[in-house]
């Protein structure tokens, strides 16, 4: 120990001794009040359920929260990046609606010409050659 710290340590020891002596001389009224306060605090702690029991009681809530978080995470990660493509089913439904809303389309359906469509299907794809 360095000679510089020794007087400091000595001072601390003396100060501690005086403070501890002073603590021992605390009067009965204060001791009684502190005792009552301690008993109230301990009773408060005893009224609380132990941690394990509390954790069981909170399990349904915790489970629900965990499930919600898991679902959110899964949905979040399954969401594709960038522009959302339109689902085929939705697309065709929209096209059907367009057809129904379109007067000409309805006329085409009403005047169903099966032979024309059969012929069109049999035709080779020549669009690239004839266009322009």
């Amino acid at each position: 120990m360095s000679p510089n710290t020794e007087p400091s340590m000595d001072f601390e020891r003396r100060a501690r001794a005086v403070l501890e002596e002073d603590v021992l001389r605390i009067d009965g009224r204060i001791r009684s009040r502190l005792n009552q306060a301690r008993q109230a605090a301990v009773a408060e702690a005893a009224r609380r359920r132990p941690a394990l029991w509390r954790s069981f009681a909170l399990m349904p809530t915790a489970g629900a929260v965990a499930a919600a978080l898991l679902l959110t995470t899964v949905l979040w990660h399954r969401q594709p990046q960038g522009e959302l493509p339109v689902a085929e089913g939705v697309h065709s439904t929209v096209e059907d609606l367009d057809l129904l809303a379109d007067g000409e389309g309805l006329e085409l359906i009403e005047g169903w010409d099966g032979s024309f469509y059969e012929w069109a299907v049999d035709q080779p794809d020549v669009s690239g050659e004839t266009n322009g």
Binding site: I30, R33, L34, A37, R38, A40, A41, V42, E44, A45, R48
Partner: peptide, 13 residues
């Protein structure tokens, strides 16, 4: 005394 009492209760709670 009040301060110590409050601290005890808070610790217990």
């Amino acid at each position: 005394l009040d301060a110590v009492q409050d601290a005890m209760l808070q610790l217990a709670r």
